[in-house]
Amino acid sequence: MIQRMEAAPPELGRLRNVALIVGIIGAALTALGAVLDTRQFFFSYLIGYVLWTGVAVGSLGLLMVHHVAGGAWTLVIRRILEAATRTIPLMLVLFIPIAFGIHQLYEWSHEEAMAANELLQHKAPYLNVSFFLARFAVYFIVWLVLAYLLNKWSAEQDAQAETRALEGRMQRISGPGLILFFLTVTFAVFDLIMSLDPEWYSTIFGLIMATAWGMSAFAFAVTIFIYLRQTEPLRAVVLPAHLHDLGKFMLMFVMLWSYLSFSQFLLIWSGNLPEEIPWYLRRMSGGWQYVSLGLVLFQFAFPFLLLLSRDIKRNPRRLVAIALFLLAVRWLDVVWLVAPEAHREEYRSAFHLHWLDLVAPLGIGGLWIAFFAWQLGRRPLLPRHDTLLEKAFHPAHH
Rank of each mutant, 00 (worst) to 15 (best):
G61D: 06
V55A: 14
T85C: 11
Q121R: 14
L92G: 07
S59I: 02
M91C: 03
S59Q: 05
Q121T: 08
G70E: 09
T53C: 12
V93L: 15
F132D: 02
L133T: 01
L51I: 11
Y49D: 07
E107P: 00
S44M: 09
Y45Q: 07
L62D: 01
L133S: 00
G71H: 09
G61V: 05
V76R: 10
G71Q: 11
V55Y: 05
V57E: 01
R86K: 14
A69L: 13
F100G: 04
A113M: 13
V76P: 01
G101S: 10
F132C: 07
L46P: 00
F95K: 07
W108K: 11
Y106V: 03
Y126T: 15
S130P: 01
T74R: 12
A134C: 09
G54W: 04
L75V: 01
I88T: 09
G61L: 07
F43R: 02
Y126M: 13
L94K: 02
L51M: 14
V65S: 03
Y49I: 08
I102S: 09
N128K: 06
H110C: 05
G70I: 13
W52E: 03
V76N: 06
A116Q: 13
I77R: 06
V129Y: 03
Y106M: 01
N117P: 03
I77D: 00
V55N: 03
I102Y: 03
A113T: 10
L94D: 01
A134M: 13
L90A: 11
Q104N: 14
T87I: 14
L119D: 12
G101C: 06
M114P: 00
I88S: 10
F95R: 10
A134R: 10
A134F: 10
L63E: 13
Y106A: 04
P125L: 11
A72N: 07
S109Q: 07
R79Y: 08
G61W: 00
L120R: 12
L62Q: 10
V50E: 06
L81N: 11
L94M: 15
W108R: 09
W73T: 00
V129R: 13
L92A: 15
Y126L: 14
L127K: 05
L81T: 04
G71D: 10
A116I: 04
W108Q: 05
F43W: 04
H110E: 09
E112H: 15
F41K: 10
R86A: 15
H110I: 06
H122K: 13
L81I: 08
F131H: 11
I77L: 07
W52C: 03
I77S: 05
L60D: 04
M64Q: 14
A83Q: 03
L127V: 11
M114D: 01
L60I: 10
